[in-house]
C-alpha cells in the first residue's frame, strides 16, 4: 500500500520533471528539471530493490554528467525566443517519438501477459540477490565473473573514446607559452641567481 503510494508520487514527479525539461523557458531550469528526473527515477529503482542501479544513477548522471552539463549551459547565452519557435515546429515529431515509445512498452507488457488470465499475477523478474541479500554483490559477480570479457571490452571502447576526445581538443598552436613543471621543480639556485660584486661608488 505504502509502496504503491510512493510509486505514484515519484512517477508523478518524474513525469512533471520531464515535462519541465521540455517546457521550461530557462535552459538552466531545464537542466535542473533533468536532475530532478534522474533523482526520482533513482528513487523508483530503489523501490524495485535495485539499490545499486539507483545509487549509481545518482553518482554518475547527477553527480558528474549533469554538473558538466550545467557548467556548459550556464556559460551559453541562449536566445529563448528562438528556442520557443523550435518547440512548436518540432512538437509533432516529438509526439510521434513519444507515441512509438508508449506502443513499444504496451507491446512488451502485452506479450508478457499472453496466456495469463486476469486474476493471475504479472510475471516480474525476481530482484538479483547475492549471498548477503544485496544486489550490488550479485551484479559484481555477474560483471566480473560471468561477463568479464564483454565488460572489459566495453571499458576499452570507453578508454579509446576518452583518448580520442582528448587528442581532438589538444592542438598545440605555434607561439604558445607553456610551463614545464618538472623543469620548474628541478631548478637550482645556481641556475637563476648570479651574485655580482660591484665596487663601491666613489663620491664626487
Amino acid at each position: 500500500m505504502l509502496i504503491t503510494i510512493l510509486f505514484y508520487t515519484f512517477a508523478a514527479v518524474l513525469v512533471g520533471a520531464a515535462l519541465g525539461v521540455v517546457l521550461s523557458r530557462n535552459t538552466v531550469h531545464s537542466a535542473l528539471f533533468l536532475v530532478l528526473a534522474f533523482f526520482t527515477s533513482a528513487a523508483l529503482w530503489l523501490l524495485l530493490e535495485a539499490e545499486f542501479l539507483g545509487i549509481v544513477l545518482v553518482l554518475v548522471y547527477v553527480g558528474a554528467v549533469m554538473v558538466l552539463f550545467l557548467f556548459v549551459v550556464m556559460m551559453l547565452d541562449i536566445n529563448v525566443a528562438q528556442l520557443r519557435e523550435g518547440l512548436t515546429r518540432y512538437a509533432p515529431l516529438g509526439a510521434l517519438v513519444a507515441l512509438m515509445v508508449i506502443v513499444q512498452i504496451v507491446y512488451v507488457t502485452w506479450v508478457r501477459r499472453l496466456g495469463l488470465t486476469a486474476d493471475m499475477a504479472f510475471p516480474s523478474a525476481e530482484p538479483l540477490r547475492g549471498t548477503q541479500g544485496s544486489n550490488t554483490e550479485a551484479l559484481g559477480a555477474l560483471l566480473y565473473d560471468d561477463y568479464v570479457l564483454p565488460f572489459q571490452l566495453a571499458a576499452v571502447v570507453l578508454l579509446v573514446a576518452i583518448v580520442a576526445a582528448i587528442v581532438l581538443t589538444m592542438r598545440s598552436r605555434p607561439g604558445l607559452k607553456q610551463q614545464d613543471v618538472a623543469k620548474q621543480v628541478a631548478v637550482r639556485k645556481e641556475d637563476r641567481v648570479r651574485l655580482v660584486k660591484l665596487p663601491a661608488e666613489k663620491g664626487p
Binding site: E51, V56, V58, A64, L70, S134, T136, E137
Partner: peptide, 25 residues
Amino acid sequence: DIDAGLLYVLALTSLGVYGIILAGW
C-alpha cells in the same frame, strides 16, 4: 546500516557541488 554504504557516500558527496554552482549562477 545499508550494504552499499560506500556508494551512498560517494553519490551524496558528489551532490554538494550543486549548491555552489547554483548559488554562483
